[in-house]
């Protein structure tokens, strides 16, 4: 599903170049649930941003579902993001004046799906994350866990190839974190490829594969025994 070869990325800060990613080679097959771990500054967020086409690499190739990702301009990137990727952010990033349903339906708006169909699909995904009753509520009326579930529903609504989650539980307490992880596991069980950036060990253990990053290189890449989040809830 994802193939990355010899990926380099550096940022220029003043006169100094900060080499963040120093040659990453990394493949993800369909249906995997991968945790990307590392301390801050290890380059894990940069890697995710490049995977999410929110940022571009300096060197290396990136193939997504056998589709080479290169020469991206903003318009093209927006199109690919919409088609291939679903994002889950630490701070949810819901649009605060839109209801839960409208937030979930928004990616479909940019896919030019007719309004009625849009709302039906959005409702379906809201039901999937267990928040159908909250469809008309604004994000400000929801708890953190509920917001993240709305965000997951939004990420799913566009039916992406890959879900990218950047510290999805970073802003949540552990009980809610496990609930969100349970949802992510369920989605993965249905066959969706998911990448989770985290620095929490217990969250990483709930994935099927853990990739350790340090100073811009992968130091460990292993498959683990998945801990089911439902055991903790």
């Amino acid at each position: 599903m994802i193939e990355i070869k010899d990926l380099h990325k550096s940022y220029t800060i003043g006169k100094n170049a900060l080499h963040v990613l120093k040659g990453i080679n990394f493949n993800v097959k369909e249906g995997e649930l991968v945790a990307i771990m590392g301390s801050s500054g290890s380059g894990k967020s940069t890697l995710l941003n490049i995977l999410g086409m929110l940022d571009v690499a300096d060197e290396g190739t990136y193939t997504l579902d056998e589709f080479p990702i290169k020469d991206l301009n903003e318009t093209k990137a927006a199109k690919y993001r919409n088609k291939f990727l679903g994002f889950i952010f630490q701070s949810f990033n819901l649009i605060n004046y839109k209801s839960a349903l409208e937030n979930v339906a928004l990616p479909l708006y940019y896919q030019k799906v007719p309004r009625k169909e849009r709302n039906e699909t959005a409702m379906k995904y809201l039901a999937k994350v267990g928040l159908a009753d909250w469809a008309s509520h604004l994000p400000s009326e929801l708890s953190g866990g509920q917001k993240q579930r709305i965000a997951i529903a939004r990420a799913l609504a566009a039916q992406p190839k890959v879900l990218l989650a950047d510290e999805p539980t970073g802003a949540l307490d552990s009980k809610t974190s496990y609930e969100v992880m349970q949802l992510i596991q369920e989605i993965n069980d249905e066959g969706k490829t998911i990448l989770v950036v985290t620095h929490e060990d217990d969250i990483a253990k709930m994935c099927k594969r853990v990739v350790q990053l340090k100073d811009g290189v992968i130091i460990e890449d292993k498959y683990v025994e998945q801990v089911r989040a439902s055991d903790h809830v």
């Binding site: 903003e74 927006a78 199109k79 993001r81 990616p107």
Partner: peptide
């Protein structure tokens, strides 16, 4: 700005 960033992340083109 942030809302526009969110919109772009979920597929809004700069033109739109």
């Amino acid at each position: 700005t942030k809302e526009l960033g969110v919109r772009k992340a979920i597929g809004a083109s700069p033109r739109s």
